[in-house]
């Protein structure tokens, strides 16, 4: 189940919609759009500050997809299973 946190997805954004954190590049920042995980894990991630619209910076990434990210100033290591279930969009640099 994909919880769409951002409801007003227009057609132009539709194409980029399926991008997950796993597709992200090291050293780049992304905005969280939604996630599709077990409820307990989703709540845990939200409680850690990964709410919709939050910026996530990929600090390090391994070939198998597990990565180190920075969310609201805190670093986390997440497995490929979580990284592949968080949908993101590229952050427009101001």
């Amino acid at each position: 189940m994909i919880i769409i946190l951002n409801n007003d997805v227009n057609e132009n954004e539709r194409q980029a919609y399926d991008m997950t954190l796993m597709d992200g590049q090291m050293g780049k920042s992304y905005l969280v759009k939604g996630m599709a995980l077990e409820k307990a894990t989703e709540i845990r991630l939200s409680a850690l500050g990964m709410t919709s619209g939050t910026a996530v910076l990929i600090m390090n990434k391994k070939n198998n997809g597990s990565m180190v990210i920075k969310v609201r100033g805190t670093r986390f290591a997440i497995g490929a299973k979580i990284a592949g279930a968080i949908t993101v969009e590229e952050r427009q640099e101001a």
Binding site: L37, R44, L48, R75, F76, A77, I78, I82
Partner: peptide, 8 residues
Amino acid sequence: NPLLIELP
């Protein structure tokens, strides 16, 4: 359990 750990 999927890996999810804070790196202090």
